[in-house]
């Protein structure tokens, strides 16, 4: 009886000692993650929830009160011509920039990989636009596209072609922004493709040659293109998400003009949210933007899964 009791207390003592050490460890772990997760709630997850909540209110910065107005912001948005123009322009921008930047990026990567000389020099040159501060380069582009003194029109005139006032013309403003977008994104895509190309085992090409794929094109179709599949979908989605976020060039070069011909989603959101301080309406625009970006991410995740299955 007394023996059993002492054993029991001993067991309890051991258990509690173990628990103290285990708790101590867990506490350390929570201590280590606490700052990060507090900030994450404060700066990321909280704001994300708020932006959705805000989109159902009529809150305006500085207003003393606000009220829940249900879907009114969305109704207003869908009835607004500017929103539809902005959405269409954004999609147009994506549809032009993504294929342009992806095919050019792939082409340059293939060209660089197809020979041994000057590889790193070319890689460096093509990567320069990625590194350069986009706002500064946008200013340079503006001058390049200057109707009178710009390089582009100068060259066109020299070749006997008609000149344009690129950024001031409704029909060309968005195209000019797309061109800058492609110019900036090509190097980034090229580097991703180069990484993909390097990881293709050389023996596959040798095997393809022995199996009768004599031309470079046949080897590309048989080996390169399928092996690059996952990288390609990845690059497409990344380019898509980045194009959806286009803002810097629009804001500094056209402010969405002339007459809304280059208005894009984030720029509309910026104008409503930070120039007119209509936070609720701006939030509704943000939600639309978020839906598109998350949609792209979902597609990426689905494609990535399928890529793994095929491999």
């Amino acid at each position: 009886m007394s023996d059993a009791a002492t054993i029991d207390t001993a067991v309890v003592a051991v258990r509690s000692a173990q628990r103290i050490r285990r708790d101590h460890r867990a506490l350390t772990a929570y201590g280590l993650v606490a700052p990060a997760f507090t900030l994450m709630l404060l700066m990321l997850l909280g704001p994300l929830a708020s932006v959705i909540a805000l989109s159902f209110t009529d809150y305006q910065l500085g207003a003393p009160a606000f009220s829940w107005i249900g879907l009114a912001n969305y109704q207003e948005m869908f009835a607004d011509r500017v929103f539809w123009i902005s959405l269409r322009n954004t999609l147009t921008y994506v549809v032009i920039v993504v294929p342009g930047a992806v095919t050019l990026g792939l082409g340059i990567a293939l060209l660089i990989e197809s020979g041994a000389s000057l590889r790193s020099l070319y890689r460096t040159i093509y990567f320069l636009p990625v590194m350069a501060t986009l706002i500064a380069m946008a200013v340079v582009w503006e001058f390049m596209l200057h109707p009178q003194f710009g390089l582009v029109n100068g060259l066109l005139r020299g070749a006997g072609l008609p000149a344009f006032s690129w950024l001031q013309d409704r029909s060309t403003a968005l195209c000019a922004l797309c061109a800058i977008g492609i110019w900036q994104a090509v190097g980034f895509n090229m580097v991703l493709f180069l990484a993909g190309l390097v990881s293709i085992p050389k023996q596959l090409y040798e095997a393809a040659e022995i199996d009768g794929a004599a031309s470079a094109w046949a080897r590309f179709r048989l080996v390169t293109w399928p092996m690059l599949g996952p990288v390609t979908t990845f690059v497409i989605v990344i380019s898509g998400i980045r194009s959806f976020q286009v803002f810097d060039t629009v804001h500094i070069l056209t402010k969405g003009g002339p007459s809304k011909s280059s208005e894009v989603l984030i720029h509309t959101m910026y104008t409503e949210g930070f120039e007119f301080f209509r936070s609720g309406y701006g939030a509704a625009l943000t939600v639309v933007f978020l839906v598109f970006v998350l949609l792209l991410t979902l597609i990426k995740a689905r494609l990535a899964d399928r890529g793994v299955q095929h491999a």
Binding site: F37, P47, S50, A283, F289, V293, T297
Partner: peptide, 25 residues
């Protein structure tokens, strides 16, 4: 917590701009 981190990566910075601005205000 790790799942939250992965989710957080998906959020583009522009999406949280308005609430973070209001918070700083």
């Amino acid at each position: 917590l790790f799942a939250l981190v992965l989710f957080g990566i998906l959020i583009p910075p522009q999406a949280t701009a308005i609430p973070v601005f209001l918070l700083l205000h």
